[in-house]
Computed example of a mutant assay.
Amino acid sequence: MPKWQKDAKEFVVSINYNETRGTQCNIPKPVLEFLKNPEKLKFIIGRKYVTIKQVQ
């Protein structure tokens, strides 16, 4: 598991394809901690950006 720099603001993750489960990736720990370790995430596709929000 990679160690992220303490002040890192950008993260590159790999996306893996699994025949049974479909596409999956690991969310970096600093991102999950920033979002207060949510159980669910929502991806919202905009015109120029994808927004990620925690789902309550």
Rank of each mutant, 00 (worst) to 15 (best):
C25V: 10
L35G: 05
F43H: 13
I44R: 15
E39G: 09
K6G: 08
L41F: 12
L35P: 00
N18Q: 11
T23Q: 12
T23V: 12
M1V: 06
P30G: 01
F11P: 05
Q54W: 10
R21E: 15
P2V: 12
P38H: 04
T20M: 07
I52H: 09
I45M: 14
M1Y: 07
I27V: 13
E10G: 02
F43T: 14
K6I: 03
Q54D: 06
E19A: 01
N18F: 07
K6D: 09
R47N: 09
K42F: 12
K53F: 12
T20H: 08
F11K: 00
K3A: 05
N16W: 04
A8K: 00
R21C: 10
G22H: 02
V12P: 04
G22C: 03
A8Y: 00
Q5E: 09
I27T: 04
G46H: 15
I27M: 10
F34R: 10
I52L: 14
I27R: 05
G46T: 10
K9C: 09
I52Y: 10
P28D: 03
V13A: 05
K53P: 05
E19M: 02
I44P: 14
D7H: 02
T51Q: 12
N37D: 08
L35F: 08
E10S: 09
M1T: 08
K40Y: 13
P38M: 00
Y17A: 01
P28S: 07
I27L: 07
T51V: 14
L41D: 09
M1F: 03
L32H: 01
K36E: 05
Q24N: 11
G46K: 14
D7R: 02
I44T: 15
I45W: 09
A8V: 01
S14P: 08
V12C: 12
P2W: 07
V31Q: 04
E39Y: 05
L41P: 08
E19D: 09
L41M: 11
L35E: 01
I45L: 14
I44G: 13
C25F: 15
L41G: 08
E10L: 02
W4M: 03
E10H: 08
V50Y: 10
C25P: 06
I27S: 01
R47W: 05
N18A: 06
Q5Y: 02
N16K: 10
Q5F: 01
N26M: 11
K48Q: 11
P30E: 02
F11R: 00
N16L: 09
K6F: 05
V12Q: 14
Y49T: 14
N37Y: 06
V50S: 13
L32Y: 06
R47A: 13
Y49S: 15
